[in-house]
Design a protein around this nucleic acid. Sequence first.
DNA 1: AAATTCTTCAACCGCCAAAAC
DNA 2: AGTTTTGGCGGTTGAAGAATT
Length: 249
Amino acid sequence: MALVLRLHPSIIVLLVLGYMLDGPEIAAVEEEWCSTSRLSFSRREEAWEMMKKAEKGEKKWVLEVNKGAWTAEEDQKLVEYVRAHGDKKWRTLAAKAGLNRCGKSCRLRWLNYLRPGIKRGNISQDEEDLIIRLHNLLGNRWSLIAGRLPGRTDNEIKNHWNTHLSRRPLTIDDLNLQQHRKHEDGYGHSHPSKTPIEPSLGFNSGVSEEDRFEAWLPYHDAELFDAWADLSGSDFDVEHLFDFMSMPG
DNA sequence: AAATTCTTCAACCGCCAAAAC
DNA sequence: AGTTTTGGCGGTTGAAGAATT
């Protein structure tokens, strides 16, 4: 406790308030603490009142919020709760599931590791090719890139890029050359490597996003792109385009 | 075999926008 | 209409294991 009292006052307030409350309210305090939150003025006043009461001699149990690696038991609790009640309201979900974690931590664990359909293991050559292409096109928009790789998370793709690809001097031209050689060798390759793509356009080349998309897309699905262009009018919207391209025919 | 350095990646942090109040 | 809460994103960290000295 002596150590705690040397912490920043706002953290002490949150801890004390957390001690005094029950259930969802504890979860709320944990969440605010977890996200280094900015307490509203009224909430801060409330917290100070609670702390003064605590100093007068009531209460003394200690609340600790788990951090770091998840245990198998925590995983099980989270999976069971989400299966039964859904994956919304993470703040209260954590408390109701009996998890001593902040809501953000639970959400991240579910989305990146526990939810159904997550593909684990090595990223294939095709997937890697697609990551390089999409990164060339979109930059560090990891969630958008992940949306094109079923079962892969933005975190996983970001990690893969940072550890394997970012330092590799591999350009889109290199990929085209690889594909050309494969084609000459006579062995097939599934999408997205089946078609040549445009020469490399560096992300900071000064070419607009729209120009790069228009250069890139026709090689992938010209008919769909045309249909999308007819429908979407003059507004250029990457997310809209991807949504459209993924719609069942 | 021990110490040190490097690599990987799960988890956290801070910020923002949208939704809810 | 203003404030608070929630969900989501990209950047970063640090523990653990692997590789090297």
